[in-house]
Design a protein around this nucleic acid. Structure first.
Lengths: 260, 260
DNA sequence: AAGGCAGTTCCAAATTTCGGAACCTTGTCC
DNA sequence: GGACAAGGTTCCGAAATTTGGAACTGCCTT
């Protein structure tokens, strides 16, 4: 195991649920002996990847991660183009918009567009959630082959909220529905009372894929309003697919005929 | 040289001026042989610290840095308190506010508060600049001992804009002035036509230090307006020093008597 | 005074990394 | 179609680093 692997193992212990860790936390989470933890933590601190609160002595991501994080896809065409369109939809509908990328079977929020409707933002940028339990996450998964999906989902299927697919078969059924209808919807999954609709966008040039969703309160919206969101999203998807040269049709054909 | 050191050396090559790098760029910037660069770049990509544009093959900071960078903001206390106060001052004066931290002889922008006056924001969060050439950067340096400052400034004094201190002696003279008057001012340094005033804030509890500045167009402000900014900043500094238990007086005494 | 936390330091053994050279794959130019 | 460059990958023995157990330090709380 290389020094870098060990370092990453420590860095991956941090999350929004655990934004800072004590020496003992890191030891417990990595299962490494004290001396190794000590050395590694010191290296990470010295190089700026971690910093240490001088008062509580706890460790947290450092200045270097802040700097690099600001650089991440700072001028990514696909994302900024999608963000621009999403802003307009959110301004018209008043709902909250999200842009996320897929990482394994999880997604990470990249951008958020707060709506005018009062709905607490619970998923700030950087937030990591199972893609299986969100509308845009499933929309992204739906564009992968079943084999690829199987490779991403952990051997023991994760415990998800009530309304999310509870096993691999249910997931595939749900993804097939998205592939057929082109619509991905979620309600009362990750967060009680919150629903969303989303789609996946893939650049024809770079092949990178992002998931775009609009999120709203289930109680505070009518079926007509949700249908309006569906129309808005369909129009936005069509426009963005044209602009980015999304190879959707070829993809769908390949998946349906089982090629590749 | 450890694997981690090498990895960091690569990560530090990225900046807002160079948000993505090609294989050859990295080789040139680190001076490492091809095989080492290849191995390292691959490790960094595999672990998520870097990602590679599938089209251009260039490398850029990865998803992991984005996630960790968002977490870094968790260490709020001192910064959020300062940001709240700065927002009020900027709202009243219409100028742009900055909060930065010191790292070696450079500073990194953490927060920016855009003012109502039209002044293009050229220093977004994450921006790294020599602290020697900014008002809040010098204010932070002024709170260190001369020995500490000497250790931070590179052996060959960096080339700075015309109005910044041009050598170590000029720098110390300027810092002594800040120590005496408690006021740090800059004009026409990093950016032509832009001036700023700033101060340094140090938490009595944790000892962490940040630099706070208000920035304006030199041409578009009168001497009276700049005096007003000075008053606003002095009031803000006094309030924040009280709130955070800034040990300014003791520090100054220690430096002046040469203790520690 | 004892005990826990958070480290640090030591050391020989085990594992990684290092860099030069040869090889491979794509895309571009002539 | 062939040459060339960019951007890598793979190989290998020598050299450097990492590893983990154990003993030792401070500091703080009980």
């Amino acid at each position: 195991m290389s020094a870098l692997t060990n370092a990453i193992e420590i860095l991956r212990c941090f999350s929004s649920a655990r934004p800072d860790l004590s020496f003992a936390d890191v030891m417990a989470l990595t299962g490494k002996p004290k001396s190794s933890t000590s050395r590694l933590l010191r290296s990470l601190r010295d190089c700026g990847l971690l910093e240490q609160d001088p008062h509580t002595r706890r460790y947290r991501p450092g200045l270097l991660t802040f700097e690099l994080g600001r650089l991440h896809r700072a001028h990514d065409d696909l994302i900024s183009m999608a963000e621009r369109e999403l802003r307009e939809v959110c301004a018209r509908t008043g709902h909250t918009g999200y842009i996320a990328v897929l990482d394994g079977y999880e997604q990470v929020v990249l951008r958020i567009v707060p709506g005018s409707n009062p709905l607490r933002v619970v998923n700030p940028p950087g937030q990591r959630t199972p893609a299986l339990a969100t509308s845009n996450g499933r929309a992204m998964l739906a564009r992968l082959s079943d084999d690829d999906i199987r490779a991403r989902v952990p051997a023991t299927y994760p415990k998800l909220p009530r309304n999310s697919p509870q096993n691999f078969k249910q997931l595939i059924t749900r993804l097939d529905e998205i592939r057929r209808t082109g619509v991905s919807e979620a309600a009362d999954e990750s967060i009680e009372g919150v629903g969303s609709q989303g789609f996946a966008l893939k650049s024809g040039e770079t092949g990178e894929m992002i998931g775009i969703a609009v999120s709203y309160s289930v109680q505070a919206t009518t079926a007509a309003e949700r249908a309006n969101v569906r129309r808005e999203l369909a129009a936005m998807a069509a426009k963005l697919r044209r602009l980015t040269g999304d190879p959707l049709d070829q993809d769908t054909a390949r998946i349906q005929t089982g090629t590749r």
